[in-house]
């Protein structure tokens, strides 16, 4: 364990920390909830509205197949977007905060 100990309570009141915490919370939980809703649309729509999945869109390929593929696209998008934001914003704010404390 690091020999250095911190005054956790003091850090927890640091305005930079509060800003970082707020931004992380809004982003992470927001995207988690949004992507979960999208994910649960799959069993819900396919189970309760199977006719929707039957609509042919491109030749024999129907809405259902494309909707499943869109789940992959959404997961990719969330992962890439989060990585970008985390690398550019969260990591920078964290570094600034840590630099101020140490």
């Amino acid at each position: 364990m690091d020999a250095q100990t911190y005054d956790w309570g003091k850090i927890a009141r640091n305005p930079k920390y509060l800003e970082l915490k707020r931004r992380k919370r809004v982003f992470l939980f927001g995207w988690w909830i949004a992507s979960s809703i999208y994910y649960f649309l799959l069993p819900t729509l396919s189970g309760y509205f199977p006719d929707l999945f039957r609509i042919k869109l491109m030749g024999v390929i129907n809405f259902g197949y494309l909707f499943i593929l869109s789940q992959f696209v959404v997961a990719f998008f969330v992962a890439i977007y989060y990585t970008k934001v985390a690398n550019n914003v969260f990591d920078r704010l964290t570094e600034e905060l840590v630099a101020e404390i140490q």
Partner: peptide
């Protein structure tokens, strides 16, 4: 057919929760 493919979405999507929170 497609029902089997639907199974694949769960394991793939579970990474989102792991990644974010």
């Amino acid at each position: 057919g497609i029902d089997g493919f639907m199974y694949a979405v769960g394991p793939m999507f579970s990474f989102i929760a792991i990644l974010l929170v």
